[in-house]
Lab assay of single mutants.
Amino acid sequence: NQASVVANQLIPINTALTLVMMRSEVVTPVGIPAEDIPRLVGMQVNRAVPLGTTLMPDMVKGYA
């Protein structure tokens, strides 16, 4: 099963992502693939992302 990117903490709206904010986990539904974590660093979320939430492509500005 493919691992997805999951929020390791509450990520406030418009926050630029850092490695410490994300972890990989096998979840359903599948979100952004864990191998894209390096690409996500520095990108901003367009909404608040609660701890444990799977990051979906539409949550990250410029990802989709």
Rank of each mutant, 00 (worst) to 15 (best):
V5Y: 00
Q2A: 14
R39W: 02
T15C: 02
D36E: 11
V26R: 01
R23C: 09
V41P: 06
M56G: 08
R23H: 12
R47M: 13
Q44R: 04
E25C: 04
E25T: 04
V20I: 08
L17P: 01
N14W: 04
V5D: 00
A48Q: 10
P33R: 11
P29S: 10
A64S: 14
E25D: 15
P12H: 11
G62V: 02
E25I: 02
T15W: 06
D58Y: 04
A34V: 05
R47W: 07
V41T: 07
G42H: 07
L40P: 00
T15D: 05
L55G: 00
Q9R: 04
I37M: 11
V6D: 00
I32A: 02
N14G: 09
K61H: 10
M59T: 05
G31V: 03
G62R: 06
V41M: 06
P38L: 13
L17T: 01
T15N: 05
T53S: 09
P57I: 04
M43T: 09
V27E: 10
I32T: 03
L51M: 15
P12Q: 11
T28A: 08
A48T: 15
Y63R: 06
M43A: 06
T53M: 12
D36G: 09
V20M: 14
P38E: 10
D36N: 05
L40G: 00
N46L: 11
T54Q: 04
G31P: 00
M59V: 04
S24Y: 07
M43H: 11
P57L: 04
D36Q: 09
T54N: 03
Q2M: 10
G42V: 01
M56L: 13
Q9T: 07
V45M: 14
Q9V: 11
I32P: 00
P29C: 14
A34G: 10
A7G: 06
A16S: 10
G52C: 05
Q2T: 15
P33Q: 09
I13T: 10
M21E: 03
T53R: 09
T15F: 04
T53I: 13
V45P: 05
A34N: 09
P29M: 12
P12E: 08
P29L: 15
N1G: 15
V20S: 06
L51Q: 15
T53G: 11
M21S: 09
T15L: 03
P29F: 15
R23N: 10
M43G: 09
E35A: 06
L17I: 09
V6K: 09
Y63H: 08
V45L: 07
V5R: 00
L55Y: 01
L51W: 14
A64G: 13
R23I: 13
R39Y: 13
Y63D: 04
V30I: 12
P12K: 03
V6G: 02
L55E: 00
P12R: 03
K61W: 06
T28E: 15
I11L: 11
N14H: 06
N8P: 03
A16R: 03
P50D: 12
T53H: 15
V27G: 03
A7E: 00
L17F: 08
D58Q: 07
T54G: 05
P29D: 15
V6Y: 11
V20N: 07
Y63F: 14
Q9Y: 10
E35P: 12
D58C: 15
V26W: 05
D58N: 06
A16Y: 06
L51C: 15
P57N: 11
A64T: 15
V30P: 13
Y63K: 03
V60C: 02
M56R: 11
P33V: 15
L17S: 00
M43F: 07
T18E: 05
P38G: 05
Y63G: 12
T18H: 05
S4G: 15
A7P: 02
E35I: 14
V49A: 06
A16C: 05
I11M: 12
G31C: 02
P50G: 12
V27M: 11
I11N: 00
